[in-house]
Design a protein around this nucleic acid. Sequence first.
DNA 1: CGCGCTATACTCGTGTCCGGATATACGGAA
DNA 2: TTCCGTATATCCGGACACGAGTATAGCGCG
Lengths: 215, 215
Amino acid sequence: MPKPYRRTNPLALAVLGLLRERDMHPYEMASTLRERHQEGSVRLTYGSLYTVVDALRSHGFIDAAGTTREGNRPERTVYALTDTGRAELHDWLRDLIAVPAKEYPRFEAGVALIGLLPPDEAAALCERRATALDEHITALDTVKTDLAALGLPQLARIELDYRQAVLRAERDWTRWFAEAARAGTLGGHDFWVDLHRGDALGHLRDTPPTRSPAG
Amino acid sequence: MPKPYRRTNPLALAVLGLLRERDMHPYEMASTLRERHQEGSVRLTYGSLYTVVDALRSHGFIDAAGTTREGNRPERTVYALTDTGRAELHDWLRDLIAVPAKEYPRFEAGVALIGLLPPDEAAALCERRATALDEHITALDTVKTDLAALGLPQLARIELDYRQAVLRAERDWTRWFAEAARAGTLGGHDFWVDLHRGDALGHLRDTPPTRSPAG
DNA sequence: CGCGCTATACTCGTGTCCGGATATACGGAA
DNA sequence: TTCCGTATATCCGGACACGAGTATAGCGCG
């Protein structure tokens, strides 16, 4: 009774996707992912890669297809996709796309506590963030034109379009918030200001009145 | 030489934020977070909570302020924020807001591999997702009006505004993609269709021509 | 008045993640 | 020739996450 596979690390999905094309050894998977700029959408670390490959093997989704050795280099184990592995890939992918999973972006945790900082500092930090996001977005533009120059069609770099769309929304919201915090137009602004009165040194108050600024 | 704190789990940030208000024992932190609907922006599980609290203590950010016991219930350890803890909270929060961290949303990994599914199936799945996102967004609307009815100002639920803004962008992109996939207007569409010719049963091809549809 | 349900308050074990260490090969410069 | 940086290829240990388990308390209901 092998316990069901938990589909945690998306790197495992990428591995299945690669093996659908051809047999590979782990290091080759990593280089191929890098070559295709997939490390932008899937977190890739060697430690995780070998853990994940082993988990997939123990669940029967991939098979060791043999080992090779070149000279005195460490032995390489080449893996191949099994039929259940192919089914798993298909199934996982469908699920990933059709059903939005709850994500916990770090910035959202920060926003929930942003009342702990004084309004003008919060605004300044958000402006910094918005600028950084702008740079990120234009950087993705150059990546896109680079890949287009290599002859890759839009479909082959579609996740960049997605990322840009989300980044733009993030930037717009952040900039809106910075302006609203400066202008004092947010509901609860007076309370926010009161909380940080006499907070010139920038450290946080000891005992806020009644309830948290964020709750 | 205590190794530097790595600021991994945002739950630790939330814990520091709570202790800034008043001393608490872990279970109380959990209930307070739930009460304030913060579990929407910070992942909260008991296992992690106790791990995180212990890590914060071992780094000197919080202190055991004493233990209490009611009747024969298990002993409760109450924690208090230290000065370094207060500084850490402030610093972490500033960093979280000003510097966008690379995130790896699961959907992006799926989008990168979406060429592995035939166009019409991909479109159908994306439409399902877009509908689910619509429901999510309206659900957040009711949460917002509920909290407003309780007298909480906008600032106290600002992270809901943020989440909605991002969800809307996600939904719009997803719907745009579904339509483009159906209409065949994406760059590389012919190639995409060819890949899945004769794929009526929905399983994936064995050997795709030359290169992956996503690479 | 005893039965089951929910709330309180942790604890533990297993699985996962990942930074850094290890070891060889190879090409070019000094 | 030897040194050094980079590419090849994997593994290990410890930190981390979290579901599931444990145990008591209190309350409502028949």
